[in-house]
Design a protein around this nucleic acid. Sequence first.
DNA 1: AATTAGCACTCAAAAAAGGGGGTTGACAAA
DNA 2: TTTGTCAACCCCCTTTTTTGAGTGCTAATT
Lengths: 366, 366
Amino acid sequence: MRILKPEVAKSRKEKILRWVVQQYVETRRPVGSQMIASEALPDVSSATIRNIMAELEEEGYLYQPHTSGGRIPTDKAYRYYVDYLANVQKMAAKERERIEEAYDSRVNEVDNMMVQTSRLLAMLSGAAGFVYTSNVQEQRVQRLDFIPLAPGAVLAILVTQSGAVRHWPVRTGYTINPTRLRVLSRFINEEIEGLTLAQARRILWQHVHSGHQEIAGMADLATQVLKDMERPQTDNELYVEGFGQLLENTSEDDFEDLKQMMRFVEERDRFSNLLSEKMTGMEKSNQKLNVSIGSENELKELKNLSIVSTACKVGDKTVGMLGIIGPKHMEYTRVMSLVNFIGSLLESSLQNWTALPPAEKDDDYE
Amino acid sequence: MRILKPEVAKSRKEKILRWVVQQYVETRRPVGSQMIASEALPDVSSATIRNIMAELEEEGYLYQPHTSGGRIPTDKAYRYYVDYLANVQKMAAKERERIEEAYDSRVNEVDNMMVQTSRLLAMLSGAAGFVYTSNVQEQRVQRLDFIPLAPGAVLAILVTQSGAVRHWPVRTGYTINPTRLRVLSRFINEEIEGLTLAQARRILWQHVHSGHQEIAGMADLATQVLKDMERPQTDNELYVEGFGQLLENTSEDDFEDLKQMMRFVEERDRFSNLLSEKMTGMEKSNQKLNVSIGSENELKELKNLSIVSTACKVGDKTVGMLGIIGPKHMEYTRVMSLVNFIGSLLESSLQNWTALPPAEKDDDYE
DNA sequence: AATTAGCACTCAAAAAAGGGGGTTGACAAA
DNA sequence: TTTGTCAACCCCCTTTTTTGAGTGCTAATT
């Protein structure tokens, strides 16, 4: 993979490439040979650097927006930078602590971990943060309960083993005897605990159709609940926060890019799909941290943006992803370690609620 | 209040003022006398119009950004426009239907009404939409239930009479017998149904301290639940969606304004406070639809933005607000009727779940 | 063979220099 | 009170000039 010859590479070519990337990320201006000569490599003349940069251009790492006026990194350069040049540094202990604290106070403060995590990501990265929970249909049921709300109305509450809670109101049209409701709930829980939503639905359908006695008279309710479980539920799976942050750290040049990006992200489906694909991809290759640079995303809307994401596991099951999306010219080293770290925080937070002794049968609920 | 003399006003001055506002909203360019003369008032010469516009300027309705080159409306003009000139037109029946449909399918599709409503507002207005739920502490409890999650962990579920559902995990540290949990739940519900959260907390505290038998041994749990109820919960009260929309319909000139606005909105607290104040203000003056134009907001971040909002009632109690926030030069007539309409939709949707026969005692839950 | 100095050339960005078009204020006439 | 007219204004757009950093190339140097 390492394309550049070791000797030259290590000593100069790589150094120059790294410098161009860093400089460009910092200043957002094409980098020229003089600048490098004077600030990074005082012992080498600008002419030499020009030669090297010409080589780098030929190899596809640099690119001149105009015949003269400095060069800027290509996607390939960023990729190389991320893969070989950016030392995936651990974050300073002090910073870790600071973040950890912020995380704890936020995540415990509010029931919705996902939103808070996205927000924290955004705040710390200066880009937009997201948390994506993988397809709910594949998650496993921990409990499905019903709370009588009012005559003719019941609140269904679904808890998955990955700790997500989903609730929705169900209209039955008629009032259900609360005792029977509890019986139903108990029955259902015995049947479906630990199954995926999809499986659970199948089982329940069978029972509804076979007119199981515990369900008798409540077929309506059961049917409705099933229908609601079935829904793609696209929306609640994806949390994106911090457009403001992103805007903040963006110059007017990127206005159009941002517009496009937002349009894309606000079509939740497309962004969800992207993340879903990415997730399975990462699962296959057993990758933990992923960086997708510009056109690597294969979506024209994202050609000037990068996504840094990490898979989020509970036990050995990938349950979601989280990360940030921001301009291609971002501080990869910092952001990568940040995403990495917050990912681990969320994981341990999830673990807290789910990796408890496998949901022991407390079916003496009666 | 009506400052302009009726005769002149009705016939010309107002007409010109209205025309300037509408034209400016449409084109975003200063409006000159010729334009008005040729397109709006062909029977009047441009010189006359100049005179009138000079008056309007003197009275503070118009303002010249440059010594020549047309005039643009001041905040005062927008205010006048909104108050007297914009006929608060009903929306076309067809459009109403269309929206109603969209609303139904979205709101029923997903458990989170608030987010969906915000999104719909954004989509239809082209600005950012928000829904704000007023201070949870004042909302009334419908139910508080517990679902055993795992040994040592319980999920608390709170349903308010305005239909909001809040849930959070509680760690007890030790496993609670589910039967006793149910007893507790029943006991609590008997005690606090219909009270405000604040009241409920007070009552519960008393019981915890007096060591009521139903609570015995579960003081830990109760205490934790109380603590969680007590939290300001600032975050879950405010939903803002559609920055993308807003960006979309914004020219590069407003970039800075937008940045400021987003910064402001993403500091949830400040925006919440603003809305909270606005809400009490509206409640006092018994106002239904409110429009705050530019500097009327008394926040420099919003000096170029307007907020159109409506109070949202369940029964006769104001439970929240919803509306849109967008550039000062928006189509007020359209947006106002839109906000109005969607407000009524949300209201009736809430009513559906809450104004049912006053939550009959189904305490035979046992 | 690699490096360097020097030179002519290129081109984007910034500054300067025109018009054009629409607007205004003023004033005199209707 | 309204209107016609006109000089002056000034934003906006386009064109031109200037400037400065950067490049490629070649010949000289190490």
